[in-house]
Design a protein around this nucleic acid. Structure first.
Lengths: 200, 200
DNA sequence: CCAAAAAGTGACCTCTCGTTCACTATTATA
DNA sequence: TATAATAGTGAACGAGAGGTCACTTTTTGG
């Protein structure tokens, strides 16, 4: 049972930290739920805090490749309706991918006591989505799908409400369907308000 | 040193829970920072968890009188510029009032493990502001200050981005000025986009 | 002003925490 | 296959956690 134990510890740690926070998690339950004894963890990590730091390293690296690289930018939609579909696809992914959900939860919990968690939280909750959609909106404005405006401000106006509803899904998973419906309604509403020449 | 000790304990508990979370706070440092010895707390509360529950009671009650009652609804502005000023006044208050800031922090940390914190978090972060601004926007639409539309959707579109920036202030207080400026810019942008007959 | 209630103290209890360590079992390698 | 490194075990440790209790000090009210 040697292989991949380190990764399994990190995965389970993410789960438990997301549920009870770093301070509220003890290494006994962490290892026990992996079928190990508590001292085994110290063959892979020097301390509980090192688990936390390794987890943060992972989260930061994952964010960089998944959301931070330029080649992962979404394409500029050809129609307004395509923006809605693209949005729903991205949102559906981000609220159902367990790892990303848990990451957001951990960042919510730990953002006030860890500097790096704080920085990553700002990316996840605020700047990341806006930066991702700014070029999209710039392109849509060029195509006349949205009225000409500051694309960064438009992207912020679009993504911040969606982000708020994504966090509702994290907090109250039972209301996921409701939240997704509201995101779609908001997306259409946004297009109606910001819409340029609807005929193309 | 008897008077108000219970309140002082609750105030300090809010502070510490907001910094380190419930699990990350111990009653020794809680009482020590009040010039008491740890056993003194048990004259006022039966357990650490009872402190938590009393604190939540207080937060819920405070929210109800401060934001939940109908008579505290903001007035409908006479001009679009007045909406900006009203918004900045309210935001300025909510990011500088220590108690409210700490409450939001605690809710961020504890929302995933406590049912009542979860419910209050949704109010603070999502529905509260929207419900507060829905009648305001309905009134402004009637007056022709905003184009006729679903006032609830407009209020959500308006308050969610502002809420996101308020949370940035909680997370990174150094960026408060920047965030406030962005809120004001967003508010004016919103009015420009949603604006009805600007002449009155 | 004095008795009873409330508030505060300090020693102590038990439990659990993170961590260490000597030891065993497994795996990899030459 | 022998050997060395790696992974896992279980007992133990010290520190610190939340909580109790007998006792003293302070406050309150008739």
């Amino acid at each position: 049972m040697a292989k991949g134990t380190k990764e399994r510890i990190l995965t389970k740690a993410l789960e438990l930290f997301a549920e009870n926070g770093y301070a509220g998690t003890n290494v006994r339950e962490l290892t026990a739920s992996l079928g190990l004894v508590k001292s085994a963890v110290y063959k892979h990590f020097q301390s509980k805090e090192e688990i936390w730091n390794a987890l943060l390293d992972e989260m930061i690296a994952y964010y960089a490749v998944r959301f931070g690289s330029a080649e992962n930018l979404p394409p500029v939609p050809e129609t307004a309706e395509e923006l809605v579909r693209m949005t729903m696809r991205m949102v559906g992914f981000t609220v159902r991918d367990e790892r990303i959900v848990l990451t957001r939860k951990v960042l919510s919990i730990e953002q006030f006591r860890d500097e790096r968690a704080r920085a990553l939280a700002t990316k996840h909750f605020l700047t990341g989505l806006t930066e991702m959609f700014t070029p999209v909106f710039a392109g849509m404005m060029e195509k006349g799908l949205l009225r000409p405006d500051d694309p960064a401000m438009a992207a912020f106006s679009y993504t911040a409400p969606i982000s708020a509803l994504i966090r509702l899904c994290d907090r109250e998973p039972d209301r996921t369907e409701e939240a997704l419906a509201q995101i779609e309604a908001f997306s259409r509403h946004f297009i109606r308000i910001y819409g340029g020449k609807t005929d193309e």
